[in-house]
Design a protein around this nucleic acid. Structure first.
Lengths: 239, 239
DNA sequence: ATGAAGTCTCGTACGCTGTACGATTAATTT
DNA sequence: AAATTAATCGTACAGCGTACGAGACTTCAT
């Protein structure tokens, strides 16, 4: 309820407009801006983790007072929202692959998505609460187009999109949580050994020790796509 | 570093032992216990949400002082851990289905898993950070056995387990996050309409308005299982 | 009986958090 | 010159998790 009160739209002009030179303050330090705040927040999250992001320290890194941030963002939650979406920006590949290979394209899209979030593990723990910033939507759009181009029937399109989404989100969230707590992993395996009679199967297959996450992601993804493409429109099965 | 210092093992005796009658305090109020704390925490989380769980209020509901809780749990995080796993307890079905239908069994297992968490939406936002309590492990064991019985090759077993896990977690996390923020959903659809030229495909198919989550979960799950079972050992394809 | 050693409860206090509020300054408009 | 607006930030406050230590009650060796 301060002086701004239209979310962050007034900043948007500045963002779409020009560089920082035309900003209202051409003085020495670059002053504050939404972009600078968000990118610094991402840095801070990368180094300090999700509970290391504190408004005071964020302001410190920006060389400003803590309360100055509140001119640009409504509250701390908004910083999280913006940081998450910022991390999800999609940089298209450098076109090394065959353009027609829709399957490779789809796999790349989803693997990049996961890799993108694993580069910033905190983003996974943010996911359950918020979503659907512009970059997220852009990725959904790409996914949708890719599946559509792959010949998935219009009827199954939404379901297919959500299936891929679910798989990626689940895999990322899981991987990130295990990455954060290595000793929990060991403890769990220990418990598995002790209570071997209670969990015989997952004890035997060494489920929790199987640490080739990337490979498992890819293989499972192949299974999923197999399932999806078995329902694709016959005309586009491609030869 | 207080008086207890063996996690919560001393409570375990009490838990496995007998009812509250044999507890050291047979007086009027039931006094405190790990079980009571956890189940009250679940109630509190259900009614107040994830940020409504405060140690003082939890203690209040239990009719005790805030610091008394710390005899039974190490810290607030531990309460979250225990609450999450408590919610994941598996109650096996009442055997109405055909015992041999592994696919139905698998689907039931995963649908129940999701339903179980959606009954307590906060559990989804807890997932990224912690996992693998005993009930979680039990579910993994069941899943593993089910897939194994379904004829999935030993080589593909772990990958299949993780694929199902990923799908369920992703679907649950997504669903829970959308449930919590209905207006975000509307706002996103609004943005989709405005920026129709930027997101044509997902705008056209109405991805975000397609709110038959349960149906989509089931259909996507069928796709996934199709993919998994196409690789099963030929001997057990069943007729 | 007596005292020591647990087991368990809880009042007080501390450091830290997000942020409400209003003063302050600089830029822009009138 | 005066007023309005945009932006910064110091102070203050309520609420949080929990460290600490004092107590009450039980159990048990003497």
């Amino acid at each position: 309820m301060a002086g701004k009160r239209d979310d962050a739209a007034n900043k948007r002009q500045q963002a779409t407009g020009a560089h920082a030179k035309s900003a209202p303050k051409p003085r020495g330090e670059p002053s504050l801006s939404l972009e600078r705040i968000v990118s610094t927040a991402v840095d801070l999250l990368d180094t300090e983790g999700i509970e290391g992001l504190k408004m005071r320290q964020l302001a410190n890194r920006l060389g400003s007072g803590a309360m100055s941030l509140y001119w640009h963002v409504g509250n701390k939650e908004e910083v999280f929202d913006l940081a998450l979406d910022a991390v999800l920006e999609y940089r298209p590949p450098q076109d090394t692959a065959v353009p027609g290979d829709w399957r490779e394209e789809l796999v790349h899209l989803l693997e990049d998505w996961r890799a993108c979030m694993l580069r910033h593990p905190w983003s996974a723990s943010l996911l359950p609460r918020r979503a659907l910033g512009p970059n997220m939507l852009a990725r959904l759009e790409l996914l949708s187009r890719s599946l559509s181009g792959a010949g998935v029937a219009e009827t199954d399109l939404n379901v297919s999109i959500w299936s891929c989404w679910n798989y990626v989100i689940g895999a990322t969230v899981t991987r990130a949580s295990f990455e954060l707590s290595h000793e929990d992993m060991a403890a769990a395996q220990q418990r598995l050994a002790e209570l071997g009679e209670r969990y015989p199967t997952i004890g035997r297959t060494g489920l929790l020790m199987d640490s080739d996450w990337d490979g498992a992601f890819r293989k499972g993804l192949d299974f999923l796509i197999d399932g999806l493409s078995s329902k694709q429109t016959p005309a586009m099965t491609e030869g």
